[in-house]
Simulated assay, not measured.
Amino acid sequence: MGTMKPTRLNTHAQDAVCPAHAQTDHPKIPKEKIGVLLANLGTPDATDYWSMRKYLSEFLSDQRVIDYPAWKWQPILQGIILSIRPQKSGAAYKTIWNNEANESPLLTITKQQTSAISAALGSKYGEGVMVDYCMRYGNPSTKSKVAHMVAQGCTKILFFPLYPQYAGATVATANDQFFRALMEENWQPASRTVAPYFDKPEYIDALANSVERAYAGADKKPDILICSYHGLPERYLKEGGDPYHCQCRKTTRLLKEKLGWADTEIMTTFQSKFGPEDWLQPYTVEEVARQAEAGNKSIAVCAPAFSADCIETLEEINEEIKESFEEAGGETFLYIPCLNDDDAHISALTKVIEDNLSGWV
């Protein structure tokens, strides 16, 4: 038999105590807690070539993201793509990088969300619930954060991928990594994962409020709102039955109904196409140009699949997609930020967490 790894409990924690009914010489262990672990996509540690290459290699090697056989894909990825793409991606990140904190906006915003949710849960449950965050790719890793929660005495962990809609390339791979981390623990905590929350009334309300605020502050009312979602290969839907496409369209419909708008005032598109095969359509970058050519010279774009602003919103939407619109004759482009740490968003996420903690607290 192999050697069993010791349980990594933090016996020096301030709240460490001897278990009830234990002998007096029993080691102290932390008081039992419930952990809430928020998870997002990930971020490079810096914008230089090697930091970007490391991050992109981990991301694009995930078979939930790119499902080609490794023998076929890895030579292309390691030999061609990662020789070129790190410089291009690094340059894009530099345009949005939080230089003051020396980190990506996604990391900054995720920290803010974690702090706000921790305060909200702390006011209700005290120190019995701890909230932390991790990334699927890059740092802080899921594995390190699960180990930290176990060391702090978390005997139960609620894992919450911060994606409103389910996709295998986002929610499923985040859950996969969480389960792999649990496999490393000798004393394994009970665990739950959070289901998609795109249709929760509190989330739709927060989304609608953000749109109404943006429209109220605009110099000119946009002719149409483009709800741009991160794309996936069409094959994932047609062959794999991934529900992402349907959940994105339902998100737009629920938002439209909440706003009381007509069908002509809002539409669904998909961005971030990668590789030669067909992805979910219409493509945002092409659709905004069609809108300009059709006479809709003022448009707004929001990104309901992202819980926090990131490279896909701050650079791709607000720079590349905006440029496509303006080159086709568009005049006024309004990007509506993600919900980030908006109070209504924090309240919605906290409600989802509390619903999923039922029976534990």
Score class of each variant (00 low, 15 high):
Thr3Asp: 08
Met4Phe: 05
Pro6Ser: 03
Pro6Ile: 04
Thr7Cys: 14
Ala13Gly: 02
Gln14Asp: 12
Asp25Ser: 14
Pro27Gln: 09
Ile29Met: 14
Glu32Gly: 11
Lys33Pro: 06
Leu37Arg: 13
Leu37Asp: 12
Ala39Ser: 15
Gly42Gln: 05
Thr47Phe: 00
Met52Val: 00
Glu58Trp: 02
Asp62Gly: 08
Ile66Gly: 05
Pro69Met: 09
Pro75Gln: 12
Leu82Phe: 09
Ser83Asp: 02
Lys88Asp: 00
Ala92Gly: 06
Lys94Arg: 15
Asn98Gln: 03
Asn98Ala: 02
Glu100Ser: 10
Glu100Gln: 13
Ala101Trp: 04
Ala101Ser: 12
Asn102Lys: 14
Asn102Tyr: 06
Glu103Cys: 10
Ser104Tyr: 01
Leu107Lys: 13
Leu107Phe: 04
Lys111Cys: 01
Ala116Asn: 04
Ala119Asn: 09
Ala120Tyr: 03
Ala120Thr: 04
Gly122Val: 03
Tyr125Asp: 00
Glu127Met: 02
Tyr133Arg: 13
Arg136Met: 05
Asn139Arg: 14
Lys143Pro: 00
Lys145Asp: 00
His148Ser: 14
His148Gly: 03
Met149Ala: 12
Gly153His: 03
Gly153Tyr: 01
Cys154Met: 04
Lys156Tyr: 09
Ile157Ala: 10
Phe160Glu: 02
Pro161Arg: 08
Pro161Glu: 07
Gln165Cys: 07
Tyr166Met: 07
Ala167Val: 09
Ala174Val: 02
Ala174Gly: 13
Phe179Gln: 11
Phe179Met: 10
Asn186Trp: 07
Trp187Thr: 12
Ala190Lys: 14
Thr193Trp: 12
Phe198Glu: 03
Tyr203Met: 05
Asp205Val: 01
Leu207Phe: 12
Asn209Gly: 05
Ala216His: 08
Pro222Val: 01
Ser228Asp: 05
Leu237Ser: 07
Lys238Arg: 14
Gly241Ile: 04
Asp242Pro: 15
Tyr244Asp: 03
His245Asn: 12
Cys248Tyr: 06
Glu257Met: 12
Ala262Lys: 15
Pro276Glu: 02
Pro276Val: 04
Glu277Phe: 09
Gln281Glu: 14
Val285Gln: 11
Glu286Pro: 02
Glu293Pro: 03
Ser298Met: 01
Ile299Cys: 07
Ala308Tyr: 00
Asp309Ser: 11
Thr313Gly: 08
Glu316Cys: 12
Ser324His: 06
Ser324Gly: 01
Leu334Asp: 02
Tyr335His: 09
Ile336Val: 13
Cys338Phe: 00
Glu354Ser: 09
Asp355Pro: 01
Trp360Leu: 08
